[in-house]
Simulated assay, not measured.
Amino acid sequence: MTPVETDRQLPSVSDMLEQQQRGWACVWCRTWFPVGLSTDLGQQRVVPATGAAYLWFPRECLDTAACATRAAQ
């Protein structure tokens, strides 16, 4: 999948579950993805105040309206 830009600012990686950081679940609503049913938001690099830099791989739901409803609950 080709990474896309999102109008929303990505949440802080430190507030996410491992599944969200690895692209297995939506960064917004935490829904698990079936294979191929998500939007790649592009590889991200984090440089924490302490420790080593690392990469994370955010993805979001294809159905953004349903995602927003789930995230608001």
Rank of each mutant, 00 (worst) to 15 (best):
Q21M: 11
T31S: 13
V46K: 11
L10A: 15
S12H: 13
F57N: 09
G51E: 07
V46W: 07
W28P: 00
Y54I: 03
A25T: 04
C26T: 00
G36T: 07
L41R: 12
V13G: 13
R8T: 15
C29T: 04
W24S: 04
S12W: 02
Y54Q: 03
T6G: 14
M16L: 15
P48G: 11
T69P: 03
S38K: 10
Y54W: 04
V27I: 10
A52S: 13
A53S: 15
G36H: 09
A71C: 08
A49V: 09
R59P: 00
L37V: 13
C61G: 02
Q19H: 07
A68Y: 00
A68V: 02
A66L: 06
A52K: 14
Q43F: 00
R30G: 03
Q21R: 15
Q73R: 09
R22M: 08
A49Q: 09
A52R: 15
R45Y: 01
D63T: 02
D63V: 04
R70K: 07
A66S: 10
D7C: 10
L55F: 12
E18I: 09
Q9F: 10
A52G: 08
A53T: 08
T6W: 05
T31L: 04
L37F: 11
Q21K: 15
Q44D: 11
T31N: 08
S38F: 07
T31V: 05
A25G: 05
Q21S: 10
Q9Y: 09
T6K: 11
C26F: 00
P3E: 06
S38A: 14
Q43I: 11
S14P: 05
P11F: 12
P3H: 08
Q20E: 12
L37M: 13
A53C: 08
R30I: 01
G23Q: 04
C61Y: 01
R8C: 12
L41S: 13
W24I: 02
Q21E: 08
P48H: 07
T64A: 06
F57W: 09
A65W: 03
R30W: 03
L37N: 15
T39N: 03
P3N: 09
V4Y: 09
T2M: 03
T69Q: 11
R30T: 03
V13K: 15
R22N: 09
Q20F: 01
E18D: 14
Q44I: 04
V4H: 10
